[in-house]
């Protein structure tokens, strides 16, 4: 059984599909616990601070991105926790997954073509390659 599930999410469509699969894993398992990890990309800090300059709370906007995910988890009645990390998305997820010994990591794939992947880099591939636990990439 997968009890400790790491769900890496950026609040996008792909991440929402990953939520459904993560919930699928928790079926009939009352011990299941999902930790949602959202990594704030440090390259976006400047744009985010400028866009939210004088706004009450920059973190609030980030939490809003996960609102739909949270709603789904609540609806399914699973135990969960939301964790916001700061760093490079790929390495941060790998580090977190390895440090806290998860049973499985569920992550959405952005579905980039090979050119985009070369330029942008695939977060899910990095995680799959370097995380110690099984990784489920949701297409």
């Amino acid at each position: 059984m997968f009890d400790k599930i790491l769900l890496a999410s950026d609040g996008s469509e792909h991440a929402i599909r990953a939520v459904e699969k993560a919930l699928f894993l928790t079926r009939n398992n009352s011990n299941a616990f999902i930790e949602v990890v959202y990594v704030v990309d440090r390259d976006k800090s400047k744009a985010d601070v400028l866009q939210n300059w004088n706004a009450a709370d920059i973190d609030l906007k980030r939490k809003e991105k996960l609102a739909f995910t949270e709603q789904k988890l609540k609806h399914a009645g699973v135990r969960y926790q939301i964790n916001i990390l700061h760093g490079d998305p790929g390495p941060s997820i790998v580090k977190h997954a390895n440090e806290k010994a998860f049973d499985v990591c569920v992550i959405g794939s952005r579905g980039l073509n090979s050119l985009q992947e070369m330029v942008l880099g695939s977060v899910s591939h990095k995680v799959a390659k370097r995380a110690n636990c099984p990784v489920m990439i949701v297409k």
Binding site: V40, R42, S45, K46, V49, L50, W53, I58, H86
Partner: peptide, 11 residues
């Protein structure tokens, strides 16, 4: 502005 950005990057 920079301090705010570093605050955000390092949380």
């Amino acid at each position: 502005l920079t301090a705010q950005i570093v605050d955000d990057m390092t949380d």
